[in-house]
Write a protein that binds this DNA or RNA. Structure first.
Lengths: 207, 207
DNA sequence: AGTATAATGTTGCTTATGCAACATAAAACA
DNA sequence: TGTTTTATGTTGCATAAGCAACATTATACT
């Protein structure tokens, strides 16, 4: 894997990397059709939030270290407004899509290095998105919860999982009704399938 | 954008591209944990199908020219079986993930070219996956249909859209019940929001 | 510390969606 | 061309999930 720091340090004429910091709850970006920005999350956690016409909130995605995001990856529609909010203190790197895709006259080493970095990040990101689809295509709340928890468990190599946001947000993330989800969580506990440890930690009693 | 043919022609010692053809309904690949293969669809159309423990079929994804797929992008779980089936005659290119990610001793030009190609394909793919998530996170069948149709409409620059598979498969793709979806399609027609043209073509009367 | 705000937990009722079963039409096949 | 298979269309009933309203607990704020 390419060293991120190396790419940051390697100043180049053909692209410009800008590093920025954000406090908790600050808006990192909102998706506007015209810009074509790419963000790489260096540290912290953030959520991509969408408000639809009726004002309903959806957690469209959750980002952590190494996540790539930005309106460059979205077909931005006029009827929904998306923004990325830091849920913890964040450090991000921004690049313009055009800078990445354009060919520099002489194939410069730095550009190739940037490509390699982005390729690696996009790889992981694709896997992440596929997992997310795996979760939300499940038909019942119970199945969504179980698959999502399993993903978290596999990622952390542990049967004890930490949900990276509030239960209220989890419901939005799984795109289900919150109280229905609470009901289901209780049912899963009653059935001895999961066990609540604290606020956002559960122990999985299945495999 | 890098020319695909150029990459195919550029023989290199550090990676191996293999071109394969598949007839309609043939299985292109099934996702097995151990392999780390990447497929690029050169021509044709294919669907990624999952059968869960209970035998329910889900259309997890739909691939067309330029799509990238393979178990390399999946956290393959033991409890669901996935396979890619050609829905039309297909030509695909296969590469091993390890060949892409490994560093060759001397940074070879061909490898950089391959990286650039893959980066471009993954870009588009990420956008595609995000659109898909946009669709299935919608809470009602009606909204799912409308957003999906809108996506198709934007892609084809036309209010007349072609659903790339049967209505039965569309229901699996949106992960909703088929008869409930049929009911909703009819309701959308009755409400003058869409208009059926033929088997899998609809005209959108909204924007 | 005390107040305001947001998250969690719980319930009764409503509704959209799932499910099953069937008829009809269209493809696929031989 | 006739036969089999698959897709489409439709319905009544069952149920999971949505919604609203509220109490309780935790967190944030000054």
């Amino acid at each position: 894997m390419v060293d991120l720091q190396k790419v940051i340090d390697a100043k180049s004429y053909c692209y410009k990397l800008v590093e920025k910091s954000f406090e908790k709850n600050e808006m990192i970006t909102s998706y506007i059709e015209k810009r074509k920005q790419i963000f790489i999350l260096i540290s912290g956690e953030a959520t991509l939030i969408r408000y639809d016409v009726r004002g309903n909130k959806d957690i469209v995605d959750f980002f952590h270290e190494g996540s790539v995001f930005g309106e460059a990856f979205y077909n931005v529609y006029l009827n929904s407004e998306m923004s990325v909010i830091a849920s913890k203190k964040c450090k991000v790197l921004t690049i313009m899509l055009d800078d990445v895709l354009k060919k520099c006259d002489s194939r410069c080493k730095n550009h190739d290095m940037l490509n390699e970095l982005l390729l690696n990040l996009l790889f992981e990101n694709t896997t992440h998105l596929n997992s997310r689809i795996e979760v939300i295509t499940k038909r019942t709340i119970r199945e969504k919860l179980l698959i999502y928890f399993k993903t978290l468990s596999i990622e952390s190599y542990s049967p004890i999982i930490r949900i990276p946001f509030s239960l209220t947000d989890l419901a939005d993330f799984l795109s289900v009704n919150r109280s229905a989800m609470m009901r289901e969580l209780k049912a899963l506990e009653d059935d001895g399938i999961i066990q609540k440890i604290n606020k956002n930690r559960y122990k999985l009693l299945y495999r």
